[in-house]
Write a protein that binds this DNA or RNA. Structure first.
Lengths: 114, 114
DNA sequence: CGCACTGTATGATGGTCATCGAACATTGAG
DNA sequence: CTCAATGTTCGATGACCATCATACAGTGCG
């Protein structure tokens, strides 16, 4: 099969939560972690669907990184799509900003003293 | 002594942190707690300097409540002033909003699903 | 002074969570 | 098929934190 959608995947699709279904406390808790803040920032610095999980430069192992992505998905911050063995990521900018106006911008702002 | 300033207080003054000196992670962590969110909301619903700590209706004991106010002060969210045996509170709306635009408004917004 | 009220400080406790190592699953390439 | 690469899952561990009960310290009133 040539380029047939590349999506025959028998793999379990990642579970997503739309920002509209996310509680404020969940969103704040998701962002109240230095590793996850860094993930969101690196994600924002590259085009959508260009970064796979292993491309992020955070000081934790694969297992912890996978856990953090689960949390970010659950908070409506990240969308993931499988492509081959990789899991590509996208920051849900507009949808999240519609639910929590300003919060993402705040997170992405390069503040000193962090 | 009649109304002589009411400030002879030998009590240790509460330690405050200006929002400008607060890291994003600190602010998010402070608000990522249901009790503290409720404290901030009740505080916002009344005029400044009208609520003493014991006036807040949260389901924790005095000790825990005191702890939460310490966290809120350290995040630049609350200012406290001693008056007699009471410690009056004020939400630092403008200063906090200048440092973290939109975050306070987000917190005060009555979202369902929390 | 003695007392009620208000808030803080001090351990102690329990739960949550971030992390790791190792095992496992899936995918695509050789 | 075999292998390397990518992620997930599981169990265990350790740290952090919210909470409590208790004791303590100011404050003002009678």
């Amino acid at each position: 099969m040539p380029e047939q959608a590349a999506g025959t995947g028998h793999r379990a699709a990642p579970v997503h939560t739309h920002p509209d279904d996310v509680a404020l406390l969940t969103a704040l808790s998701a962002l109240a972690d230095p590793v996850r803040i860094q993930l969101v920032r690196e994600l924002a610095a590259q085009p959508d669907w260009t970064l796979s999980c292993s491309n992020f430069d955070v000081p934790v192992g694969r297992a912890a990184k996978s856990h953090h992505f689960t949390v970010l998905r659950g908070a409506g911050l990240v969308e993931q799509r499988d492509q081959g063995p990789k899991r590509l990521n996208r920051l849900r900018r507009e949808e999240f900003d519609a639910r929590f106006p300003g919060l993402l911008e705040l997170t992405l702002r390069a503040d000193d003293l962090e």
